[in-house]
Design a protein around this nucleic acid. Structure first.
Lengths: 338, 338
DNA sequence: TTCGCTTGTGTAACCGGTTACCATAGCGAG
DNA sequence: CTCGCTATGGTAACCGGTTACACAAGCGAA
């Protein structure tokens, strides 16, 4: 591997001159610069970024810490981040916390000196726990997370109002007995969606304690919910699942039991995963632009890195949009658009 | 930020002793080590990895260069890589070549000094072009790519035999006129699948020049293929799309035209994306364990990094499995299992 | 007591690139 | 011809951790 000293020797100049020529810092005459560049080409010199980060005190890299890397959700987030990062000439260092607090601490620690900033998406953990591990000097933006007591910028989805709107829509289509399938207990997204559902049922539907079935965001838990619904003889004319995966399982379970969707029971999900539009009937859901979650967070981080103060922009809330499809079609609509 | 010198001063020892204590290199008495560790805790010291990589000449990071980050395919690959990398305590540095040769060169160059090894997935490019940019001293494994003339280890999917098997299966189910929807012209996966199809048609079906429609792996190109098929009045009793995405579009297009699947026309895809099993009828396809593509490549890279010679294991071919589902069901099967 | 050995600790050079500061050459003005 | 300025380039310290080597202390053996 060629070093800067090699280049300098080859070009017949000092390391300082070579460095200046390469970085275009002026104080170098055209012929000198040309000689240096020729040497660079000849030796195939590429600056060693480890050494560079020592003196420059920046790495042109951002660390991304996600709870898991499974499924389209995370792939879309990474894509959104990469889109913006690439534009700004930054690299992405991936860290996986694999769900545990200890892993998260390790992941954050191991990024010291490797990154200029951090994007963190803590799914279940309390922010207070994370605070101990975060380096206050390292710019950090939270993904899909209300930073709460921590004074850090974040991007989040308005799960509460999304769930509220969907519940309202179901009621508006004539449903009286709407059942909710909840997500993991400690997941904030899941809790907010449940709150939105409960509040809408109370205020719009006039129902005090609506039925709620347990779930964990997995397809299997949707199937189980369908069984509970049928065997428990729970009266229901609509089911609102806390995410699309569960809605998919639910529909399969209902079909198994001979129930028709939306004829007997309407179904709605949340997220608008690509699969949703391809089901038959297609799944009504709340559309979350997952990639924007990533790109927005990355843009915020870039601004912090540039030294700008975010002010009011330090909290960005993305509002999901209601997508009405086949699983909530009324009989008229079903005839009009099979 | 606390440095090693700070820790040494705090513990009342020299930097050398502090370093040895932290890295557990022996030659340090228990009380001395305890004092150092106490200082580490107190100052919240984390070694600066940039500085470390200078002397150690390793970074515990592997670079991953992908053509794009879109869709489940890449997400699965990254997940597979991460699974193995995490186990080995390695980090992932993501690079996106965004399709162009120039970008690829930049991505590879910018990883100099940042990574110990490289995983590269070149979709369309010729290996000869890449060779100029690859550092021979940097261990590299190709993903989903036959390294060809380059003497580098790789993991690939046996697209040819997969396509051959699927075509054979379609013919075995009574199809006579099978049409293929091809992938992008310069994509090697697509070309191999097309070759497998053509050869199977000739050898098993006795058909010399089977009909082939153009496509580009996108859902839309599947829809277009359906239109071409109908409007061109191309006789067909089965369609084999080069990937699942196009099969999905194709099915939608056929439904639009009033054709029933598999009644009028059987359909098959390739990849087994998660969506495949959820379609109705469910999509028959060749199952590729995409995550294994990533994890296998990562395991190979780890072995190279440990100094092992791969020998025969330097070329790993993953064989896809045929998954027969609803879109290729014969009428008897359709009655038996609706 | 002194020599020799083991064991623990310190000093300083080094990895590769950056940059503050200094030295020199070249030029015009006086 | 000398002075003084600027443009250009060189020297060396530094970023933070690692490690070869030197050194000192402690112990047993002669």
């Amino acid at each position: 591997m060629a070093t800067l000293r090699d280049v300098a020797r080859e070009a017949g100049v000092s390391v300082a001159t070579a460095s200046r020529a390469i970085n275009g810092l002026g104080n170098v005459t055209a012929p000198t610069k040309a000689a240096v560049m020729a040497a660079v080409k000849k030796l195939n010199f590429v600056p060693h970024s480890g050494a560079r980060s020592l003196t420059r005190r920046k790495t042109d890299t951002v660390g991304v810490i996600l709870p898991d890397l499974f499924g389209e959700f995370f792939s879309e987030i990474i894509r959104g981040i990469d889109l913006v990062a690439h534009e700004a000439g930054m690299h992405l260092l991936l860290g996986n916390m694999h769900g545990s607090t200890h892993e998260t601490a390790t992941a954050i620690a191991s990024m010291r000196g490797r990154v200029d900033g951090l994007l963190v998406m803590p799914p279940d953990l309390k922010p207070e726990l994370l605070a101990d591990y975060l380096d206050p000097a390292l710019p950090t933006v939270f993904l899909n997370y209300d930073a709460g007591s921590l004074d850090l910028p974040f991007v989040a989805v308005d799960n509460y109002h999304g769930a509220y709107a969907m519940t309202e829509a179901l009621l508006g289509r004539g449903a009286r007995q709407v059942v909710h399938i909840a997500g993991p207990k400690h997941n904030r997204d899941a809790r907010d969606r449940q709150r939105g559902f409960v509040d809408a049922m109370a205020k719009v539907g006039g129902v005090r304690n609506p039925a709620i079935l347990p779930g964990d965001f997995s397809e299997e838990s949707g199937v189980k919910a369908a069984q509970l619904l049928i065997e428990g003889q729970l009266p229901a004319d609509a089911v609102f699942a806390a995410n699309d995966q569960m809605a998919v399982g639910l529909i399969a379970g209902l079909a198994e039991a001979g129930k028709s969707v939306p004829g007997d029971i309407m179904v709605a999900g949340f997220d608008d995963i690509p699969l949703a539009r391809h089901l038959s009937p297609s799944l009504s859901t709340m559309q979350v632009h997952i990639d924007r979650l990533g790109s927005t967070a990355m843009m915020m981080l870039l601004r912090v890195l540039r030294g700008e103060t975010l002010g009011a922009a330090s909290a960005t809330i993305l509002t999901p949009a209601l997508i009405a499809r086949g699983t909530t079609a009324t009989s008229q609509e079903a005839f009009a658009q099979p």
